[in-house]
């Protein structure tokens, strides 16, 4: 399997501020890669470095097997991108905007442009939009237009920064379906987001960024394999506690967490003992828990004292590691 994105020791200082610190990303072709991190953790800077907008202080980045930003002109035509908010020329219609962006840069062809624009608009659900200027678009429409702009060249790699920002639940579902459909057709999708749920529902692999460092990079399935515990909900709390006694990790109200890898055997045991089971499920950690365990306090909090976190460096008032 080839890599779509590979970085080695990618580092960016803005003046004295360390924004990205020795990043080793690895995105395989065919992945839907979720790039997670709190606001200000360096996601956007990383995305910009991958696209050649910001130059790394040190380290290397390869996109689709070619060095960036050196090979930008060969690589970027095969990359569709949405970086932070979508942007368009406000006095033009969405269609005119797409035609304009399509006409820019190398390898732009006039032939078939109208068709490409219509296709892209159809894909994001803006096919029927009228000629009103983008200025009059809602936030969600702009988001869809930005996505259409990323799709217009039928890229091999999609780099999307917060793609569902401003969309209603229906819109979020549409976009998610679209990305999965594209992925099924062979497009690698790299989504950066601070919304855990969004990543959890879509991604095959995740990377977690915390204050410029990659603290986690794994298959989502691996992360979310059963923890070896079972969660039981029952109205016969007293009976259940008596039966399971030493195997109970925690019990709050009707919810009891049991150390036991085999839910089916436990169910049989409970039923045999006459305990009424309302709900019994093998425990899996949520992505939220995983991320919270891996990261410290959000990087937009600047506590006066060093935060109590899992091994994070103490931060000074400016957020620069001491």
């Amino acid at each position: 399997m080839t890599t779509a994105i590979r970085t080695r020791g990618l580092t960016k200082y803005y003046g004295g501020f360390l924004a990205v610190d020795g990043l080793d990303l690895e995105v395989h072709e065919g992945d839907v890669y979720g790039f997670l991190g709190a606001n200000g953790s360096g996601k956007t800077t990383t995305v910009r470095m991958l696209l050649g907008l910001v130059l790394a202080t040190s380290g290397t980045a390869e996109v689709l097997g070619r060095a960036m930003p050196g090979a930008a002109h060969d690589v970027l035509p095969e990359v569709g991108a949405m970086i932070e908010a979508p942007a368009a020329y406000p006095h033009l219609s969405g269609r005119a905007n797409l035609a304009l962006f399509d006409a820019m840069g190398r390898g732009s062809r006039r032939r078939g442009r109208a068709g490409r624009v219509d296709d892209a608009l159809d894909r994001v659900g803006l096919g029927g939009v009228d000629g009103r200027p983008v200025r009059a678009y809602s936030l969600g429409m702009r988001q869809r237009l930005g996505l259409a702009n990323a799709l217009i060249r039928q890229p091999r790699l999609l780099v999307l920064d917060e793609p569902t920002n401003g969309l209603d639940p229906q819109g979020i579902r549409d976009i998610r379906a679209l990305l999965l459909e594209l992925n099924a057709a062979g497009t690698t999708v790299f989504v950066s987001s601070h919304l855990l749920l969004e990543i959890e529902q879509m991604c095959t692999r995740v990377g977690v960024l915390d204050r410029g460092r990659l603290v986690l990079q794994q298959h989502l399935d691996d992360l979310r394999s059963p923890t070896g515990r079972v969660v039981l909900r029952t109205r016969d709390v007293a009976d259940a506690r008596r039966l399971l006694d030493h195997r109970i990790d925690e019990a709050v109200g009707e919810r009891i967490v049991v150390r036991d890898g085999d839910a089916a055997a436990l169910a049989a045991e409970l039923v045999a003992a006459g305990v009424r089971v309302d709900e019994l499920v093998a425990e899996r950690r949520s992505l939220e828990e995983i991320v919270l365990a891996a990261t410290g306090a959000g990087s937009d909090t600047f506590a006066r004292t060093s935060p109590v976190d899992a091994g994070g460096a103490p931060t000074g008032p400016t957020g620069v590691p001491a």
Binding site: R48, L51, G52, L53, A72, H73, L76, P77, V79, A81, I83, E84, A85, P86, A87, A88, Y89, P90, F101, M104, G105, R106, N149
Partner: peptide, 14 residues
């Protein structure tokens, strides 16, 4: 300021 610069440059336009 309008944010379009980054989209122009990743098109890519030298």
């Amino acid at each position: 300021a309008a944010g379009t610069l980054r989209y122009v440059l990743v098109r890519p336009v030298s």
